[in-house]
């Protein structure tokens, strides 16, 4: 009887070890072949290369203007202009990638910041793609689908800009003022709709976000954020995004 039991235990133990080995190997396999392994290392490698190339390519038009056509702006003027611009956007070089990363994922972040127009185009396109495909943002599937959404938005944007530039300023500036006003109202309607979608999908976090963002915008209107350097919009984004993440986490950490 005793021997039998011991045999059973040995058998179980052996199976258990085999099982563990097998599981470890399969997780190892998926981690070298699948999303977290081969895929991610490819994206990070090419994302780093293409975005660094982007830093170099970005200077080509300026180099052509100055060193081929000989338009030499005073260095002091370029520097002054850069300082003015950096005092407005400098914080956003860091705040935007950090804030939008949880939605865009690794590939979407490389693509979105190389192509620009993020809040007004890349984010809505990636969220629309995730919603239609029924995947959850923040998951591996969400990242893949966001990549498709960002890519489509890049193609649509470039095609429309190309048509626009071919039509030229003369045609575009002849558009009736009403049409231009209407086009300018697409953006606020889009932002409202995006928040409506997020609000209904996650009502509790939505309420927190509305209170934080609304409160910070109110404080800013009352001039109470004036102690911050530059335009305090970055402080509103930081509080709204990270406040919602941290409070949301507290609300849901025992439920998932």
């Amino acid at each position: 009887m005793g021997t039998y039991n011991i045999n059973v235990r040995w058998h179980d133990c052996f199976n258990y070890i085999l099982d563990r080995r097998f599981k470890m190997e399969t997780t190892k396999n998926t981690s070298t072949k699948g999303f977290q392994g081969d895929y991610m290392s490819y994206i990070v490698k090419w994302g780093t290369i293409t975005n660094l190339l982007g830093c170099l390519f970005a200077f080509l038009p300026a180099i052509v203007v100055t060193f081929i056509y000989g338009y030499k702006p005073p260095i002091s003027a370029v520097f002054a202009g850069f300082i003015m611009q950096a005092s407005v956007s400098g914080v956003f070089w860091f705040v935007e990638p950090i804030s939008y990363f949880p939605v865009l994922g690794v590939p979407g972040t490389y693509m979105s910041f190389l192509s620009g127009n993020i809040g007004n185009l890349r984010l809505p396109a990636s969220v629309a793609a995730q919603e239609a495909a029924g995947v959850t943002p923040g998951t591996d599937e969400g990242t893949i689908i966001a990549t498709m959404g960002v890519a489509i938005s890049i193609i649509v944007n470039i095609v429309m800009l190309t048509i626009g530039v071919i039509l030229g300023a003369s045609v575009l500036s002849r558009l009736p003022a009403g049409v231009i006003a209407a086009l300018n109202n697409i953006l606020p309607a889009l932002f409202g709709a995006m928040f409506g979608q997020q609000f209904i999908a996650n009502p509790k976090i939505g309420v927190v976000a509305a209170i934080l963002a609304g409160g910070m915008i109110g404080l800013n209107k009352l001039g109470m954020l004036a102690f911050l350097p530059g335009n305090p919009a970055y402080a509103i984004i930081i509080v709204a995004v990270f406040g919602s993440i941290l409070i949301g986490k507290q609300m849901f950490k025992d439920k998932v």
Binding site: S99, G142, A201, G214, I245, G248
Partner: peptide, 16 residues
């Protein structure tokens, strides 16, 4: 996904 939801709610609450 909660982190993503928080980031999206926060970003679009601000933008809207």
């Amino acid at each position: 996904p909660i982190v993503s939801a928080g980031a999206m709610c926060g970003a679009f609450a601000y933008l809207s």
